[in-house]
Design a protein around this nucleic acid. Structure first.
Lengths: 213, 213
DNA sequence: ACTTATTTGGAACATTCGTTCTGTTATTTG
DNA sequence: CAAATAACAGAACGAATGTTCCAAATAAGT
């Protein structure tokens, strides 16, 4: 960062500016944020102490406060990053699928497989945050509501597009179907935290997907 | 509680017993446990301090420790009570319904209406506990797995009975359907914590219920 | 009245909490 | 070199954490 240094030149009251180059940041702020995100994701807000953060982020206690403010701000920034990543990930995910039915099928399968692979059993950061922090913080509530509508909308647009290009023939209301799939997706994130059974879960989502034809 | 007081009578080494009646408990242990359950349910484990419990349970700090052990034991006892209540509540709920489809329809509607009525936005204690405490505690994990299987089984038996008496004609695998409904039920508990929209949710479960015919 | 034991309020304990502060070290440009 | 400041280690803060302890008050039966 270039820091302008201004000073008064004698009695002329003229401001001149020249530049010093202070020490550059030794850590990547975004890398640190990713680490914070993973810790909050795994442990939740309350169960993550500042000492935990100091131990895991790899930067100094003071640097955390200098860079991110306080614990609350760091949490919200971490949460925002997660939302951004999962939102963009979802859109890209759908784009690469042959048709709507495969899209949703793979989405659910993916969630199940992720739960099985995840030895830390972190689940979904959004779900964890909803169940832990609603309704403590009104500003967070708003973010969560926006997030919900956002995802339901992505589901809805995907279904609508699928129907328009003839991949989908169902007469179900697509908005309701989107909400249903979003609700089911959240349910998978919860249920699959506890000893996920791949066959059991996969078979059950097949039943749900029979709604698409 | 009757306390037997034994003492040795002279050199005969004969044990005689008579009774003193100590002060009886002034508070109803179960009433206090219900209060603890509601507090843990609302705030979660980490965010509930012993001071919170002292303030809300109406009994002394020392009495909490004397009666329930420590915070961890009190939480688990509270959680057990919730499980018992919700399990028995569900069975009774299903028994009073005309047929399977109405049973599940009312169950989902009930969950939505509860979320809307609940100004504290407590959600579901089981869901909250899963997302907060998995995988910290292995013994809790076992309880949660048992709880899951238990509820899926209740759903399954209800569906099976419904099919046997001709209320249900679907050819879907009933075990998968039970798992799907359990997953969806958990999803509703999460989604409906954030500004629940009655029409949106009700319409979406109607789509799910179209699987029953 | 005496005995027994529960319940009480409140003090006390060592730890940990989130946060702030104080130096010291390190790095880059003028 | 000097100037500037990011990043550091670590102490320090008061408040809160979970837990234990103690003396006093209370209630019921002998």
């Amino acid at each position: 960062m270039i820091v302008p240094v201004s000073y008064l030149c004698g009695s002329d009251n003229i401001t001149s500016t020249f530049y010093y180059m202070p020490r550059v940041k030794l850590f990547d702020e975004n890398e640190v944020l990713v680490k914070a995100m993973n810790l909050f994701w795994k442990q939740g807000y309350s169960a993550t102490s500042v000492q935990d953060l100091v131990s895991h982020l790899g930067i100094n206690r003071a640097s955390i406060y200098d860079t991110f403010g306080d614990k609350d701000k760091l949490f919200k920034k971490s949460f925002q990053l997660y939302r951004k990543q999962s939102r963009e990930g979802l859109i890209q995910f759908f784009e690469n699928k042959q048709n709507v039915k495969i899209g949703f099928s793979e989405l659910f399968k993916n969630a199940i497989q992720e739960a099985i692979n995840d030895k830390e059993r972190k689940g979904c950061f959004v779900v964890n945050t909803i169940t832990e922090l609603v309704p403590n913080d009104e500003s967070l509530n708003e973010v969560l509501e926006i997030n919900k509508q956002d995802f339901i909308n992505i589901f809805f647009e995907y279904l609508k597009k699928g129907k328009e290009i003839g991949q989908l023939k169902t007469n179900q209301d697509l908005k309701s179907l989107a909400t249903l799939f979003y609700t089911l997706y959240n349910g998978i994130r919860v249920v699959s935290k506890v000893r996920p059974n791949k066959k059991e879960l996969t078979d059950s989502i097949k039943v749900a997907l029979s709604l698409l034809f």
